[in-house]
Design a protein around this nucleic acid. Structure first.
Lengths: 256, 256
DNA sequence: CGGTTGGTTGAGCTGTATCAAAAGATGTGG
DNA sequence: CCACATCTTTTGATACAGCTCAACCAACCG
């Protein structure tokens, strides 16, 4: 019976880096290679879900992981009091389905219609047993995801809403144009409420920040789901230089 | 030459769960077993550091991981603007030294004097190659750490300072009394500033919250580094029930 | 004992949540 | 293709919580 190393199967797949800085270190570097993806495809079946559909729920028994072929998903965590936080957004070629002890750690829900490859854990487990390199890729993914969560923490530690939003925009841009890292068009498939839940703000505040940035000529947006960065310089200046709660240096001139 | 699977060595060690809820799922479940720890000890050397000393810096070349024998450390991340965020605190038996691409992802600094076992990555790598189970333990650790970061995000998404602080206290309690999960005495080896940096608040606010909780007879504290939970009920009530930005249900009675 | 560090307390200001409502988008069925 | 219902986004007015600046206190240490 092939269950002696069951612990291995309980584990866990993580995904998408969620790197933060455009000047960034390596971006989507450790996504799967096409070859690796092909090997995975051999055990996969296609799944199609609609906007708003839940792929799986936090705490449910994890018996598959999913490779996103198209669409955008979000990872949601419930608080004891019923409020929620969004941990991240996932794009095509990301892999979702992180589990711990056989249960999914978060709920994953479709932001837009989506198509995914479903890979049963049993089969995946068998595959990984014979493919150590692939196995290792998944570990790297978990670490990268961890790094992403840490950057998320970094953003949430910032007080000012403008900065949080700008960092979010930077992140979304990075997700969409991994190679360049720049490119002034940013698509936001998710709602203002989603952005608010990701940033720990209210939808109103998010909306107001966008309005302010628009008035300040830093961004432009033909519609709420499309942002164009007009003033790259100020965009970065605010996002990177101004997050302080306390000024980094007291600005006290030494001499006198 | 033993370098062909180098990628494996670049990786990564994570640590301490940082579980959040006392009703908790599994607490420190996947810490290393004593046997595993012994196997690791065979390649380890002892290191002693003082309060405030930096074990390693974010971005530095990672050539060892550390198993904490005694003391408390903190993991610090620098923002582009010079402010910092604390990602977590580490206690005895935790392992620190998460790296990505051969570089430490965060700075780790001693909160108190500490003693650690230093395990060079080269040796560890060799060891893990022949000890798949141990290897797997490290992966589980990474996943658990990820989960911890997600819970941190959850806490930072809460607006009210009281709740953040109470959740922090709950976390610290959990770290100190993993079996029980309860026990009204909580030690806080770190400074108010550290707590503030972990929670995304200012030291003043943290201090004020403690004062308020003291006045409200929810906690008592003989000195700033020792907290006693007096009113467990309200402690939990505030920590768990009141995180909302918006009320979870509009409180509109259905009938009429 | 001054000096230093960490913690507490106070007064005022700013920014975000909240409550409320209007304006835009989106989708459906006629 | 339009009219209607619904949902999302935006805008406005107000209240309150946490940040800022500043002083003060306690403990620790040379």
């Amino acid at each position: 019976m092939p269950g002696s190393r069951a612990a291995s199967s309980r584990l866990a797949i993580a995904a998408r880096p969620f790197l933060a800085r455009p000047d960034g270190d390596g971006a989507r570097r450790d996504l799967l290679t096409p070859q690796e993806r092909d090997r995975l495809a051999s055990i996969a079946s296609l799944v199609r879900i609609e906007r708003g559909d839940i792929l799986f729920r936090q705490g449910a028994e994890a018996n598959a992981i999913y490779d996103i072929a198209g669409g955008v998903l979000k990872s949601v965590l419930q608080r004891p009091d019923g409020t929620r936080a969004i941990l991240g957004f996932f794009f095509p070629q990301d892999i979702v389905g992180l589990a711990e002890d056989g249960r999914y750690v978060s709920t994953v829900q479709a932001v837009s219609g989506a198509v995914l490859y479903r890979m049963p854990l049993r089969a995946l487990e068998r595959l990984l047993k014979h493919d150590r390199e692939l196995d290792h890729q998944f570990l790297l993914k978990a670490c990268h995801e961890l790094r992403g969560a840490q950057l998320h923490v970094l953003t949430l530690g910032i007080v000012r809403a403008e900065i949080r939003v700008l960092r979010f925009l930077g992140l979304m841009r990075q997700m969409q144009a991994p190679e360049a890292g720049l490119g002034s068009l940013i698509e936001l498939p998710m709602s203002r409420a989603d952005i608010a839940e990701y940033l720990g703000l209210t939808p109103e505040t998010v909306s107001r920040v966008f309005a302010r940035l628009r008035r300040a000529q830093i961004i432009a947006s033909p519609n709420p789901h499309l942002i164009r960065v007009v003033d790259e310089e100020r965009f970065l200046a605010i996002a990177e230089d101004e997050g302080r709660v306390r000024p980094p240096a007291p600005r006290v001139s030494a001499a006198d």
